[in-house]
Amino acid sequence: MAQAEGLDKLLSEHPFFRDMDTKVRGIVAGCAKNEVFEAGQYVFNEGGQADKFYILRHGSIAIEVDVPSREPLILETVNDGEIFGWSWIVPPYRRTFDARTLELCRIVSLDAKCLRGKMEKDHSLGYEFYKRFIPVMAERLGAARLQLLDLYGNPRA
């Protein structure tokens, strides 16, 4: 219980959860766990089961993809106060990229099965999550589209 309260406090300090109803956040904290990753560790790998969702408290994470016969490419970095690993909410709950820590990272992970179960039972919790998730996903999609434009590329190249 004391641990869940500590986690509830950590969640309340994170921008993603800050304005969430206290009761709802308390339910979420019941699925949460504190984790620390050293620099250079993989938090998850492409193709793996998306059984957790991550809230980055401190540090930075590279979202990357392995390209055959080339160096892996970093597509995006995630920093303090952001969330990552959103495949947990989209069937078939499979990771699409690798996530690797660029420095020591303090993370709160949420058990995806536990959370999905609670959301299934309590749709208002589901709504609270989707309301926060969709803007993040839209922002990342917009950013990915801009990156695709290769804005800084040489016009002659």
């Binding site: 930075s60 590279a62 990357e64 160096e71 892996p72 490419l73 970093i74 597509l75 995006e76 970095t77 920093n79 690797r100 660029l102 420095e103 950013a143 801009l146 990156q147 290769d150 804005l151 800084y152």
Partner: peptide, 14 residues
């Protein structure tokens, strides 16, 4: 930067 190899420890993104 828009994209980077894994030796880059800075930000990637717009």
């Amino acid at each position: 930067v828009d994209t980077a190899g894994t030796d880059w420890t800075g930000n990637v993104g717009v």
